[in-house]
Structure formats: structure tokens, C-alpha cells
């Protein structure tokens, strides 16, 4: 912290002059970039629609309240599908992610080349959103729950696999050494030395991802991959806002409950 001498007085400042200048410059450049980007967006926006937006919104809300309670009866089946997409998709993803993570973790991989392949699988799966997976899978498998399950599963491999292999790399190596010293086979070393140490995080991460997948599975229906998203799409297309609000309410409650379940299971595991 520089202290400047001004005549006989000492003036204290947080930054000296160049630092202050640089800091201002940084902010200025940042602001300019944001403004420039905003300009591009503004150019690509049809402002007459935007001017109309408040009216549209109030219209939507007015027609959406109260929700169409009777519509609830047709929602049970899609809701069940949504739940299944999330659960089966998570199970699928985790089942693939666990062996992949053991191949990707530095301390359990059989060979560096295998490790890079496993890492590639994880990165590739992480980089593609489940909706994009769904978009492609619907083309191949046709619309339906199956495409949704696979889309959610494919996306989950990367997410859970990354957290799994980080957990594997962080374990305490001493018990592993001790188990190996008893003459245990490689599989036994994994099951006694590694598994008890990583099991809590594997369960925790899986439940966490299940909770995220509930949310994701509400939208894969938008591209035809099953679940409540199909109803949402249909209701929006015909502008039935009371149905839309009913669906949103159901989604809100489902997500709320799943988050609560996931949080309490994770608390139990610690």
C-alpha cells in the first residue's frame, strides 16, 4: 500500500497511480465489451415485439390464473414418465460412469492411454447437453421415453464420471496399500481398499444428479423424448395458459420434492 508524500503530508491510498489507472482501464474495457455485445443483441431484436411484451406477459398471467385444475388428471401419466426418464437415465449413466471413472482415475487406471480414452468419454458426454442428445436420439429411436432415458443417461455419464474419478483420486492410499499387502487380488483391493472410501461420494453424486435429471427430464419432451415436456409444448402451441400454469405448478412441486429427497439422502450419507 503506497504512501505518497505530498509536501509535508503523507497521503495514503489503496493503490498507487499506475495500479489505479490499470484498474480503471480494466473496468472500462469490461464495460465497453458488455455494451458492444449488448449493441449486437439490440440490433438483432425486433423491438416492436419487446414493446408489446408487458401486455403479452399480463395477458399470459391473466389467462394462466387460476390454473386448470381439471387438466391435472391428464398429467399423471406424463409425470410418471418424467420420473422414470430421470431415474432410469441416472441409473444408466451411473452404471457406465463407475467403471469409466475407475479407468480415468490416476491411481486405478491400468494404462495412461486407457485413462485418456476414459477422460475423452467423460468430457465428450459433459459437453453435450441432454436436450441435444435427445434431439439426435429422437431422430434415431423415434419419439418416446426411451430416447429421453438414453439422452439423460448419456449426459449423466460425464457429470457423475468426473466427480467420481476426482473422488477416487482423493482417497487415502494407506488402506489400499494395507489391503494389497495381505495378498489380495486386484479386484479385492478395489472392493476393500477403494470401494468403502468412494462409496459415499458415489451415492451422494448419483442422488444429486438424479435431482438435476428430474429438472432436465421435464424438458426433453420438448423435442419429443417423452415426459411432461410434450404436454408443455402442446399447451404453449395452442396458447392454453391455464394448462401451462398447471404444468409449471406440477413441475415446481416435483422438483421441490426431489430436491428435498436428494438433500436428505446426502445428509444421511455423511
Amino acid at each position: 500500500m503506497p504512501v505518497l508524500e505530498k509536501g509535508s503530508e503523507k497521503v495514503w491510498q489503496k493503490r498507487d497511480r499506475t495500479q489505479a489507472l490499470l484498474s480503471w482501464l480494466g473496468w472500462l474495457v469490461g464495460a465497453a465489451v458488455v455494451l458492444f455485445c449488448w449493441q449486437i443483441i439490440a440490433d438483432n431484436t425486433n423491438w416492436s415485439f419487446v414493446a408489446d411484451a408487458p401486455e403479452q406477459a399480463s395477458h399470459m398471467i391473466a389467462r394462466g390464473i387460476p390454473p386448470n385444475w381439471g387438466y391435472l388428471n391428464t398429467l399423471w401419466q406424463p409425470l410418471w414418465d418424467t420420473l422414470n426418464i430421470a431415474t432410469l437415465g441416472t441409473l444408466l449413466g451411473v452404471a457406465v460412469a463407475i467403471p469409466t471413472a475407475f479407468l480415468a482415475a490416476r491411481n486405478t487406471t491400468p494404462h495412461p492411454i486407457v485413462r485418456y480414452i476414459a477422460l475423452l468419454v467423460i468430457v465428450g458426454s459433459r459437453s453435450v447437453n441432454s436436450l441435444i442428445w435427445a434431439l439426435l436420439l429422437v431422430v434415431v429411436l423415434g419419439p418416446g421415453v426411451l430416447a429421453g432415458i438414453l439422452a439423460i443417461g448419456l449426459r449423466s455419464i460425464g457429470f457423475t464420471g468426473k466427480l467420481f474419478y476426482e473422488a477416487i483420486e482423493e482417497i487415502d492410499p494407506n488402506p489400499v496399500e494395507a489391503v494389497a499387502a495381505t495378498g489380495a487380488s486386484a479386484a479385492q483391493v478395489l472392493s476393500y481398499g477403494f470401494w468403502p472410501q468412494v462409496m459415499p461420494s458415489i451415492f451422494g453424486v448419483s442422488v444429486y444428479r438424479w435431482d438435476i435429471n428430474i429438472r432436465e427430464s421435464t424438458v426433453v419432451g420438448l423435442v419429443g423424448a417423452g415426459g411432461i415436456g410434450i404436454q408443455l409444448q402442446a399447451s404453449i402451441n395452442i396458447l392454453r395458459w391455464s394448462q401451462v400454469s398447471m404444468i409449471l405448478l406440477v413441475v415446481f412441486l416435483t422438483v421441490f420434492v426431489s430436491e428435498w429427497i436428494s438433500a436428505s439422502v446426502r445428509r444421511l450419507l455423511i
Binding site: 494407506n174 494395507a178 495381505t182 489380495a184 476393500y192
Partner: peptide, 29 residues
């Protein structure tokens, strides 16, 4: 290795397993 048993400084037990499971792990070989 079954004939050479090792005892460690930091005990090197599998913390989340029970006492009995840790003892039995001596027979893994």
C-alpha cells in the same frame, strides 16, 4: 504376500468398515 503381514504407522485401516471386516481383510489372499 499372505506369508508376510504388515502393520502400519497410521494403522491403514479401512475407516468405513467395521473392526471385524478389517480383521477379516487379512484373509483376502
Amino acid at each position: 504376500r499372505r506369508r508376510m503381514a504388515m502393520i502400519f504407522q497410521e494403522y491403514a485401516l479401512v475407516e468405513r468398515l467395521t473392526v471385524m471386516e478389517n480383521v477379516l481383510s487379512g484373509q483376502l489372499g
